[in-house]
Design a binder for these strands. Structure first.
Lengths: 169, 169
DNA sequence: TCCTAAGCGGAATATCGCCTTCCTCTTCTA
DNA sequence: TAGAAGAGGAAGGCGATATTCCGCTTAGGA
């Protein structure tokens, strides 16, 4: 693959990430192309169909979250703090929208790996008595989706409240 | 107005309430008509434009919430319990979607009245020390919208957690 | 430097879903 | 029972997006 082609592929993926976060997975292809500073033709050359684009996006996204998880797990003092930080980070990035848009879509195995990692932390947080026991990993993952379609100020306000609700009772 | 016309008007409003709750305020007019067991023509005869329909919907909606508020305020033992019950009821009804769809739309004066009533309860709940003081009426109203676009099981799971997050810390 | 395959842009075309109108048939009600 | 009001839904129009196609540009090896 030629160098410029590679560069454009990366740009497209980057643009798609933002646009999908803003407008959902049905966002106009032309918007993505424009955002990437590229013609629609180029977009279609790289990703002949929307599905392929979303799949690539999903994979990249899961890996990013994975990295974020590693980082917070290392930086935070305990498991519950790490979970909180992870959720806040993910939603702040506005990437939750991608999770929602992509839920059920491709890359299920990568997602599985992520879920397993979150699950480890959650169990640990509960074992340490910091997180209420009647909620679980599914709730955390769902949380990312729930706040996905509310960009801007809403998550910033509610997510902390929501996480307080998950504290040990 | 002829009796059948009146009957259809009511049916349309009822159908619109459900459809808007499911698909947002841009839901296809034909879907609303079909749901009401009526032709599109009839829908357009009663509500020449979408705005009129939404306005009627908003007014009806606010009144329903008003009634719900009165009921819970009377039934529940204290103000905070009433607020919780009100929120849970509203979202369970799936009407939150309408609130979201209609936010900013018509019937601002009716909405004002509702907000004022909620505000009374919230202040009382905080005065009684049952609700955390760093959250307010705006948060409660926003709550209705936040869970609006997540019909089904999600609110049932998260709303209680969210409300726990609003408990006195 | 030159050649050419790969790549690019974006106008043009095809599709699709929804809005809105309008005309004919039906139903109230005085 | 007449006639005004109402109902239904096919038809036409419109805007937005997907997708193709082809002439022009460029990277990069010989």
């Amino acid at each position: 693959m030629r160098a410029d082609a590679r560069r454009n592929r990366d740009r497209i993926l980057e643009a798609a990430r933002d646009v999908v976060a803003e407008r959902g997975k049905d966002a106009p292809m032309e918007l993505i192309a424009r955002r990437a500073g590229v013609g629609v033709g180029t977009l279609y050359r790289r990703f002949p169909d929307r599905g392929g684009l979303l799949a690539a996006l999903a994979e990249q996204y899961v890996h990013e979250l994975m990295d974020a998880l590693d980082r917070t797990a290392a930086d935070e003092p305990d498991a519950w703090a790490a979970v909180r930080a992870f959720v806040l980070y993910s939603v702040e990035q506005g990437r939750g929208a991608i999770a929602a848009a992509l839920a059920g879509t491709s890359a299920p195995e990568a997602r599985q790996a992520l879920v397993r990692r979150v699950d480890d932390l959650v169990r640990q947080a509960q074992a340490e008595g910091a997180m209420r026991a009647d909620a679980g990993t599914d709730d955390i993952m769902e949380l990312l989706s729930v706040f996905a379609c509310h960009p801007g100020v809403v998550p910033q306000r509610f997510l902390p409240l929501m996480l307080d609700g998950l504290d040990r009772r």
